[in-house]
Design a binder for these strands. Structure first.
Lengths: 247, 247
DNA sequence: CGTTATTTGTGCGTATGTATT
DNA sequence: AAATACATACGCACAAATAAC
């Protein structure tokens, strides 16, 4: 049985602080409370606070300076997130909302079907925006194979025009179908905003946008989702941490 | 004054273990000694061993399983969290050429100096293009701290206007200075081409470009390079593969 | 099947050092 | 010089997962 492990104190504190930073408290490089203050406030030891901060440092959420304090990583009003893993993508639902533009439904699209490597030409398609603090920063079109689309089309969060929810499509695939997303490949380029995209994102046609194409593969190696997103650079920047790996 | 801090015990242990893994001891996911064993062997507390392991886990070098032990990450990088790598960046020199626009030289720049977290306001700066098959696809400005810039400024490949060579700046840092780049953080957005950038890239002002900001950190945790690059989306797109970590 | 030994995970306490103000 | 704040290091106790018996 999968009994729910109680979240570790340091993990909970890290989550709390992460949320506070992402929601814009400690805006733009402000100083966070000291270790001692947080220890008192949350009734934990200073070591536990340090453990939480250690995680936040490695995520790039805060910067620490001996003798001065701990500072939120400056984000010039942008939505900034680290996407180094599939977990990071699923974490999108933590502090953003999904707003349905065109609900998930069955459709004939030869091109999308062939990109999903399907035999038939039937796919499911949904268009939605993602909001952070009620500001739209991204417009996404998702294509799903019929068996998965059919299941997810039952969910009100994806099938109701205008619906607002805190979910991710890959999260839904994980919980509502037999598939589990294991891997994603993304390709990122810059494009000029087309008229309809500009309209949905409250920008102007011709504005530079980030275009991100992702394909998701489940544990069995099957392509389970294709997504194309357009991001407003004023409200979003993509961030990755690269490391030198085992040779 | 930059007095040389003696390396922390946990950092030294982490470096030792990292080296052992990279050299293929513990090959093929072999089990490492337990915390208690390492603590005895290196005459440190178990907590210090844990601190070292914590770093190695976040680097993806090892995988830990409660009740079983600590295992070296398989060489294929199967369980690696980060899929872009510093090696990918160094690989740029394999099939592209660097063409110097403004040679590397000393300069006063308060803003760049503070972003490099320097005490003084002196930095070294170079501007270059990168060519693939004699087509320019990227324009880059690099800032270096004085001690590193001073050394690299001696190299003709970076100090001669118009010079063409097959090198990368981080490669030069690796081979010509005491530092070794271990980590890079990048942030990617889209911008409209300014007049001078458009000119260098044979594009038109206003064209959408990918803007990539990178900061490079060496093995000692020091910021050793800041780079800003503009890419033509027609000739370049950024790709990453994301995986789900071992649950 | 439970019991036990091993091994990592969590949490706290203390002491000392170093950087900054 | 003193106070503040983060960094390192060690110690201990107990919990949770695993494997072997």
């Amino acid at each position: 049985m999968t009994s729910v492990r109680t979240e570790a104190a340091y993990a909970m504190l890290a989550r709390t602080l992460r949320g506070a930073i992402l929601q814009g408290r400690y805006a733009d490089g402000a100083r966070l409370p000291t270790e001692a203050e947080l220890a008192t406030e949350y009734r934990v030891s200073r070591q536990t606070v340090r453990r939480a901060f250690h995680d936040l440092v490695s995520e790039g959420m805060v910067r620490r300076v001996p003798g001065r304090g701990t500072f939120a990583a400056p984000r010039g009003g942008q939505y900034l997130r680290q996407f180094g893993s599939v977990e990071d993508l699923m974490g999108l639902s933590l502090d953003t909302k999904l707003e349905v533009i065109t609900p998930l439904r069955r459709q004939v699209d030869i091109d999308a079907a062939s990109r999903l490597r399907l035999d038939s030409d039937v796919v499911y398609r949904i268009v939605f925006r993602r909001l952070h603090n009620d500001v739209a920063f991204c417009l996404t079109t998702v294509y799903l194979p019929p068996d998965i689309g059919m299941v997810l089309a039952e969910l009100p969060a994806l099938s109701t025009p205008g619906a607002l929810s805190e979910v991710t499509v890959i999260g839904m695939i994980d919980t509502h179908t037999g598939s589990s997303v294991a891997e994603a490949e993304q390709s990122i380029t810059a494009v000029a905003a087309s008229d309809p995209v500009a309209l949905s994102l409250d920008g102007r046609p011709g504005d530079p946008l980030l275009r991100v194409d992702r394909s998701y593969v489940d544990t069995a190696g099957r392509l389970v989702e294709l997504a194309t997103s357009y991001f407003l650079p004023e409200h979003y920047s993509y961030r990755v941490k690269l490391r030198r790996g085992p040779a």
